[in-house]
Design a protein around this nucleic acid. Structure first.
Lengths: 130, 130
DNA sequence: CTCGAAATGAGAATCGTTGTCAAAAAGGCG
DNA sequence: CGCCTTTTTGACAACGATTCTCATTTCGAG
């Protein structure tokens, strides 16, 4: 991996800490707004840059909402998927070795190589259920 | 399901036909450009509206590229997933009853209900491999 | 054919995201 | 500690995809 390291700054730390504290997937815009409220002034462009860098470093996961907005979350670094409450946003990291194996097998059967996949599960969590 | 039916028009037919003929996931912008080239003048807004309607009707699948662009494809109506070549875009519909069961079980274990999921597999197909 | 409702198209508006560039801050060094 | 080079920052412009607006056109039931 040729991941060029970044020079540490107050702004990057602020973004990182906010993500650590907030366990839900959060948009760049929201991160920016929260930091502003907290008095931690950070430019919007800088928030985007910090998030990108963290994604490249593998310390943050990204996914896209149905509306196409990118949302970020501090995550463990090994391969995993997410179970997300569509009401409150609570997120659980889950693993599924069987699924990993299945995707690889299916891909191989069709002659595909260099396989990756995306898998997210959405539902209503116990606290939000009626 | 309260899917209000649409009034049939030349433009909608043109969009639908183009998607049928092209087996790959295609962006609204591309659909618009192709129709224009083919002399089938259709407004961009109309292309978006037609695609949305087809998605709601379940005759077209939509997913987001890494860049956040929505791409559409005419698909069978039953639940399935996609194996997509990241080089040429060739797409295969795949089914995985085991995966469906797994996602439901995992979600239930965590107290989640009303579960859905997204799963896409990416790889390099035989024709595009080195 | 006539009429009202629904669909279209051109362009403006919106929204998330990225690019620009001068000013500010970090690290190494004497 | 100051100096210098390099990187990062921030305000704002630019951008691309998508949606909205609204006058005009088309559909199809009567």
């Amino acid at each position: 991996m040729t991941t060029t390291p970044r020079r540490p700054t107050r702004q990057q730390a602020a973004v990182a800490e906010l993500l650590e504290r907030c366990n839900d997937f959060t948009s760049a815009q929201t991160v920016h707004a929260r930091l502003r409220e907290a008095g931690e002034g950070v430019g919007l462009a800088t928030v985007y840059r910090a998030l990108q860098a963290m994604v490249e470093a593998g310390t943050v996961d990204v996914l896209r909402t149905d509306e196409g907005e990118a949302v970020y979350r501090a995550c463990s670094t090994h391969h995993h998927h997410h179970l997300v409450c569509r009401a409150c946003g609570r997120t659980v990291e889950v693993e599924g070795p069987a699924v990993e194996a299945w995707t690889d097998r299916i891909a191989a059967e069709h002659g595909f190589s260099d396989v990756t996949h995306t898998l997210e599960i959405f539902g209503t969590c116990g606290d939000c259920a009626p």
